[in-house]
Design a protein around this nucleic acid. Structure first.
Lengths: 239, 239
DNA sequence: TAGATTGTTAATCGATTAACAATC
DNA sequence: TAGATTGTTAATCGATTAACAATC
C-alpha cells in the first residue's frame, strides 16, 4: 500500500504474487531463517531494535541482501536506527503466513516418520501434526504421540476432517507417488517429500523435497576435491 | 583430458576446482539426483542407453540443463544415441567422490538422531555411520543399531580412530556451535547440520543445513498466497 | 544417407552485492 | 547539526534455456 515504484514491473515472470507484493523464492527461504534468528534474539533482547548489519551477521548473509529481502515486506526499518525487533518479527510472520496454526498430515510412520512425528521444532513454530497415516496393517490402529495411526486409504477423510493444509511424505520411494496422488486428489496443495524419488504433481501444487543422502553426497564431492589440495593447519572456529 | 575449449576460462570465480574441471554448485546438487534416478532405472533397464530427454523427464529438469550438467563431467554421450547408463552412472559417482565408502559421525542421538542412525538411505548410498555420540550421561554407553554411544568429549579420539569424513549434527540448537567447533578442531571439514541455528566455521570447512521447520514455513507462505486466489477444480496428478 | 541426439553457444533471466542518496 | 543506517539503484555474477551445428 505504501508508494513503491515497482508496481508497473509486474510482468517479470514465474514469481510468487498475490494481493501483496512479489517475493522472490530465494527471499522466502531466507525469511524463515531471519524469523527464528529474531525469535531467538527476542528472548535475550539487549535492545528493542536491531540493525541490518547485526541481523545479517547472525543469519550469515550479506547486509545488503538482508535489507533487500526485508524491503519486499514493506518499509519497516527506521533510518539511522534499525528495525524494531517485535515489528519485524510480526511482519515476517505475516508475510510467511505463520499467523495461526496449520495442520499437517504425516504419511509413512516408519523410522524417519516416527522421528518427524516427535520433532519439537514443528509444534514450536506453529505446525500441528494432526494425523499420522501408514499402509502397514500392523501399525494402523496403534497410538504414537497421542495420535492413532490411520490407514492411508482413509486419507481423503482425514484431510477433510482435520483440515490438513500440508502433507508430509515419509514413505519408502516406491509408495510415494501413490500417496502424493492421493493427497492431491484430497485437495492438499502443499507437500513436503522425504522419499528419495521425483514426484509428479499438477502445476497448482507446491512440492518441496528433502533428500538426506543427497546432502551427504554433495559434501562428499567437496571432500574428495579437498583431499587433493594442500591441507591447511587447522584453525579453531570463530565465534 | 579430452580436448575442451574451456581450459583457458579458468579465471571465472569462487566455484569448485581441482585436478578435474569446475563444476557449479547447482550442478553438483543435481548430479546427486541423476545418480539415484539412474540407479533406480538400471534395475529395470529396458535399454542400455538413455537419452537426455528421457533422463531429464525422470529427474524433473529441462533436457538442455541436463546436457549442460553432464558436459562438466566430460564428453560421455554418443550423438544420435544417448548416454550409456553404466558409464554415466560411473562417471557421476567418480565426480561426486562416491567411489569407496565414507565414515560418518552422528552427534546428538535424540529423537531425530535416532531416526538418522537407522535411516537405510545412508548405507545404501555408500555412507557408513561409524560413530554415535551424545552429551547425555543416560544415553552414553547404551547400544543403538549395533553401535555403543560415546560421550561427545571423546569426539577427537573417535574422529581419528574411525577416520570420520563427515560430521552430522543432530543436537539441540544450544549445543550445536560447541559440537561444530569440536568437529572442526578434530579435523572434520564436512558438516551436515540439522540444528535450527546458524553455525560459524572457518572458510575451509563445508557446511550444509537441513531445516525441517523452515521447509514447512516456505510451503506455508505459498499456501497463504494460494488461499486468496480462485480455487481450480482438482485435477488428478499426471503419471 | 536420413534421422536422432549430443555438446555448446548465446540470450535471458534471476539473484547477489557495492555503493550511495535519503532520512531518521 | 552530525552520525548512523535504511531503502534502492545499478553493476555484476551465476544459473537456466532455446537453438543449432556437429556428429553418431
Amino acid at each position: 500500500m505504501t508508494a513503491q515504484g515497482d508496481s508497473t514491473e509486474i510482468n517479470s515472470s514465474v514469481h510468487v504474487r498475490a494481493a501483496d507484493r512479489y517475493v522472490p523464492e530465494a527471499t522466502v527461504a531466507r525469511l524463515a531463517t531471519y524469523f527464528w534468528v529474531l525469535s531467538a534474539m527476542g528472548e535475550e533482547a539487549r535492545s528493542t531494535t536491531i540493525s541490518s548489519e547485526e541481523l545479517a551477521a547472525a543469519a550469515g548473509v550479506n547486509s545488503a541482501m538482508l535489507r533487500k529481502d526485508l524491503s519486499y515486506l514493506g518499509s519497516y526499518g527506521i533510518r539511522g536506527v534499525g528495525y524494531d525487533i517485535a515489528t519485524l518479527t510480526g511482519q515476517i510472520a505475516r508475510t510467511l503466513g505463520l499467523t495461526g496454526h496449520r495442520s499437517v498430515a504425516l504419511i509413512g510412520v516408519g523410522n524417519l516418520g516416527q522421528a518427524l512425528a516427535g520433532y519439537d521444532g514443528f509444534a514450536s513454530r506453529g505446525f500441528r501434526i494432526a494425523a499420522l497415516l501408514d499402509a502397514d496393517p500392523s501399525r494402523v490402529g496403534t497410538v504414537l504421540r497421542g495420535l492413532k495411526i490411520r490407514h492411508v486409504d482413509d486419507l481423503a477423510d482425514v484431510v477433510r476432517d482435520e483440515q490438513i493444509a500440508i502433507g508430509v511424505i515419509a514413505t519408502p520411494a516406491a509408495a510415494a507417488q501413490d500417496v502424493c496422488d492421493a493427497l492431491v486428489c484430497a485437495g492438499v496443495t502443499s507437500i513436503l517429500n522425504f522419499a528419495p524419488t521425483v514426484l509428479s504433481v499438477p502445476a497448482h501444487v507446491d512440492i518441496r523435497k528433502v533428500d538426506l543422502a543427497a546432502e551427504l553426497q554433495i559434501l562428499s564431492f567437496h571432500e574428495s576435491r579437498k583431499s587433493s589440495e594442500p591441507i591447511e593447519p587447522i584453525e579453531v572456529a570463530r565465534r
